[in-house]
Design a protein around this nucleic acid. Structure first.
Length: 427
RNA sequence: GCUGAGGUGCCGGAAGCUGGUAAACGGGUCAGCCUGGAAAGCUGAUGUACCUUCAUGGUACGCGUGGGUUCAAAUCCCACCCUCAGCGCCA
């Protein structure tokens, strides 16, 4: 959410920003927002003076009563004023809701370094690490390999839980756990606090974190309860300090969240969904940062380095993309996607790193001050970056390190976490 | 899940809870005075929104949240959230 004052006072800046996004709808919404806001302010002022009148009449009534005099005239007048106030209050509430919805739909201000473009094809590759693996045989997809090795059961996953659920088996489970522990160990060493968040959260904090449309498209709701399954630990962690004031001298707060992630994936039609790539739940270690505004751009690069360090230690071939204006979404001011090489020769997303500046924090009411007792200075900045999503990282390992005999070599750094196993192979 | 107590400012914490302008007392922070400088002391300020202005000033809102009754709600009524204590259930 942007600051409504910024929208009012610096409309041209907001307008220019929207033009870059290849989304003319949003410009219309901005105009509507300005109209609603003007109307709201006018009515607010009007209603405030009506309330002043009512308060005065109320005092008059009280005074008359104390002196034992009837106050018929004042009561009648007060009733009239009150009716008007109630009417206005209803209108105000409507305008306020409408204004808030509109304000929420206005996306964040983009950083100057974000490339302007229409869709993912206009995003710019900023670097590439490693070399694509060379095979002297036809490389298989991870799903083929895992099924050949009897490490996954997709059919029974579908029978019991539905499409895009699965059973992981045998050493593949160890690999999943090893990746999580490995990521936590690395992040812990560079100063992150490990967090295991609640896996279900209430509607109100969730509204502060995601777009309304995401409730339908992404999150599972528990029937009959005010509870939603989290789609990533980013959500409960960002909502953690909702409506709180943080001490500036204790920032930045660095959290390494670990949790399963639950996603409906309603809008996944036409996207790549093979095997473990896009499933209804997966495990993930996430980096989440609360910081001062002046710290966020450096930290954005820092946490990018962290996740790349993980992929490099695993020896994976990947590239980093600066996501363009048409594909960046509403919340981030700048976003890097990290994409890994798959056996069909294409790069696909393994993680994404967003600097949300104060956009998320304003919505959640997370502010900061320089120290205890000092006045509140503003909203914190928040950043989130995948450290390691196990499902996609496992795909990368399996497809990039597959062998002619159908086995898969385990990266050396993971072996201490899985009883020294060197290969996934047929038992 | 049940029973009981509670939720008040930047923080602690009291009174009001037989409806009539909420905030004693203590602490923090900021500004001013004092000082060679500081501490202490004294004085004032210290939430949000809207209008107005060069400065400023004015109004409304604010007692966990959302409703209701009333001219008027911290106070009365309803629903919900959370904390603590006890009981119950439970890996």
């Amino acid at each position: 959410m942007l600051d409504i004052k910024l929208v009012r006072e610096n409309t041209s800046l907001v307008r220019e920003n929207l033009k870059k996004r290849n989304n003319p709808e949003k410009l219309k919404l901005l105009d509507e927002l300005l109209k609603v806001d003007t109307e709201w302010r006018k009515l607010q002022t009007q209603t405030n003076s009506l309330k002043q009148k009512r308060n005065q009449l109320s005092i008059d009534v009280a005074r008359s009563k104390r002196m034992g005099k009837p106050a018929k005239k004042e009561l009648a007048e007060a009733k009239k004023v009150d009716a008007l106030i109630q009417k206005n209050d209803k209108k105000l509430a409507k305008l306020e809701t409408k204004g808030r919805m509109l304000l929420l739909s206005i996306p964040n201000l983009l950083h100057g370094s974000v490339p302007v473009g229409e869709d993912e094809n206009d995003s710019i590759e900023v670097r590439r690490w490693g070399e694509p693996p060379q095979f002297d045989f036809r490389p298989k997809s991870h799903l083929e390999i895992l099924q050949d090795l009897d490490l996954i059961d997709v059919e029974r996953g579908a029978k019991v839980a539905g499409e895009r659920f699965y059973y992981l088996k045998g050493d593949l489970v160890l690999l999943d756990l090893a990746l999580q522990k490995f990521a936590l160990d690395v992040l812990r060493k560079v100063g992150f606090t490990i967090i295991e968040p609640p896996l279900m959260i209430k509607r109100k904090p969730y509204e502060g974190v995601i777009d309304l449309s995401d409730f339908e498209m992404v999150t599972y709701k528990i029937e009959g309860e005010d509870a939603y399954m989290i789609a990533t630990s980013e959500h409960p962690i960002s909502a953690m300090f909702m409506d709180e004031i943080l001490e500036g001298n204790k920032l930045p707060l660095l959290f390494a969240g670990i949790s399963p992630c639950f996603r409906k994936e309603v809008g996944a039609h036409g996207k790549y969904t093979k095997g473990l790539f896009r499933t209804h739940h997966f495990n993930k270690v996430e980096q989440f940062v609360f910081c001062l505004p002046e710290q966020s751009w450096k930290l954005h690069e820092d946490i990018q380095r962290n996740c790349e360090l993980l992929y490099q230690s695993l020896g994976l071939h990947y590239r980093v993309v600066n996501v363009c204006t048409g594909d960046i979404g509403n919340i981030a001011a700048k976003k890097y996607d990290t994409e890994f090489w798959m056996a069909d020769g294409k790069f696909r997303e393994i993680g994404s790193n967003s600097n949300c500046t104060d956009y998320q924090a304003r919505r959640l009411g997370i502010r900061y001050r320089e120290g205890e007792g000092k006045p509140v200075k503003g909203f914190v900045h928040t950043l989130n970056n995948t450290a390691l999503a196990t499902s996609r990282t496992m795909i990368a390992i399996i497809e990039q390190f597959q062998q002619r005999d159908g086995s898969v070599v385990i990266p050396k750094v993971l072996r201490p976490y899985m009883f020294g196993i060197e290969k996934l192979e047929k038992k």
